[in-house]
Design a protein around this nucleic acid. Sequence first.
RNA 1: CGGGGCGUGGCUCAGUUUGGCUAGAGCGCUUGGUUUGGGACCAAGAGGCCGGAGGUUCAAAUCCUCUCGCCCCGACCA
Length: 479
Amino acid sequence: MVEEYVTAIPKKSEDFSEWYVQIVRRAELADYTPVKGCMVYRPYGYAIWELIQGALDRRLKATGHQNAYFPLFIPESFLAKEAEHVKGFAPEVAWVTQGGGEELEERLAIRPTSEAIIMHMYAKWVHSYRDLPILINLWNNVVRWEKVTRLFLRTTEFLWQEGHTAHRTSEDAMEETLRIAEIYRDLVENELAIPVIIGQKSEQEKFAGAQATFALEALMPDGKALQAGTTHFFGQNFAKAFEIKYLDSDGEQKYAWTTSWGVSTRLIGGLIMVHGDDAGLVLPPRVAPIQVVVVPIFYGNEQEEVIRKAHELAQTLVNAGLRVKVDDRDEYTPGWKFSEWELRGVPLRLELGPRDLAASSAILVRRDNRKKEKVGWDALVSRIPVALEEIQSSLYQRAKEFRTANTRRTTNYAQFQKVMEEQRGFLLAPWCGESACEDRIKADTTATVRCLTTDTAEGATCLCCDRPAAHWAYFAKSY
RNA sequence: CGGGGCGUGGCUCAGUUUGGCUAGAGCGCUUGGUUUGGGACCAAGAGGCCGGAGGUUCAAAUCCUCUCGCCCCGACCA
């Protein structure tokens, strides 16, 4: 049983939304601003983002991608070149109509995504098959005028990365689209400890302008799905709209094949929801800005010695490559600090007091299960990295077990509706692929097709009509 | 955008129904002292003009109008 030390936070199980907002603010991850729908990423929250960035950036560079930067403003006419794209994004674009006090001849979109400006530039850069592929990634911000916003999960402005690639063949582009999806899976499952399913989006749910969209979907504790990342295969849609043509080795002019893909700071929202508990945030060690907090416990005459030793042990851990903080403030009691660092999600706490000093050891406490362990000073450097890995893997396992327990298979529409109403979670069901059924399911249950599976649905009929099913699909309510 | 809820020191809230003197509490904050192994205690302090604008009134946190923001349920949305 988990004891409750922080009373001011609502219980996760009782008021999930309020719990979420409180964690974000009390752990100092983010705060509201005077601008509607816009949030500040506070240092502790931004540090998590930097760790996620680092982890993904390494993976992207290892697969040949390069970072670049493109402008914030996109001329309206560019956005309009790909018909589906503009139709999809126009309703949520913020426009700049004046500059330096003068009306602009053509208004500028504040990028909701950068396909338009990037495709324009790629058209200038690509002439020969030798110029392909182009593998560029951007770390930037985008603006989408959302009607309803939630800290990290959906904000008017948010931080993300958007990759944009151009290829010689359809196969190359599709391979890239799927490769990135697997890189995302690796990132989200292994760094953030959040299990995901990957699958293709339905026609209705795919990206505006894409031929195929693949998504990572994660299950949140309230039974709703969170789209954790997407990759898009554009075919030649954008290449044709923006005239990205090259001369192939056979002497023919051909259109390039393009992709784009992105993950955002929304991942941080997923982290909070999936791993947090009634005492606050629980961070997977690999993305924890502080992996170990050392709390010296001192009484009058031993204070100096305890603090000195705490810093000495901390330095040893830092030298071993760990992210460590010593909380030697004397205006707070140890108990207060325990609660505070639990609220902030630090994976391991190292307690060092007079008793430990006498025994040349320290008490190591896990955030995820509060188990305590006495560790000799000499063993800390070897024990702590192992303990961090144990936590990392335990968080992942726990999340995966939750998902397994909340993924159900059904072919019966009445049962589907009942489960979606009472338990939520992922529902695997056969679907004909027609948007009429998709619409009906949404109207009846508010659930949507999260993604399709590659499982064949031979012999099965659609969940809600008489047609033969085309796919098994994952359904869920979503964020 | 529709329906509902809520905006009062940093935080959580009372006060609003039935307008009335200097707007309250707990926590937090500052200073001093005692403490310190699960959010310590005592004492003395600082801090709000009641989300914003307008109106009614002798008098507005309280009534009316407009407006901004946050939360929830929908609609919408990579």
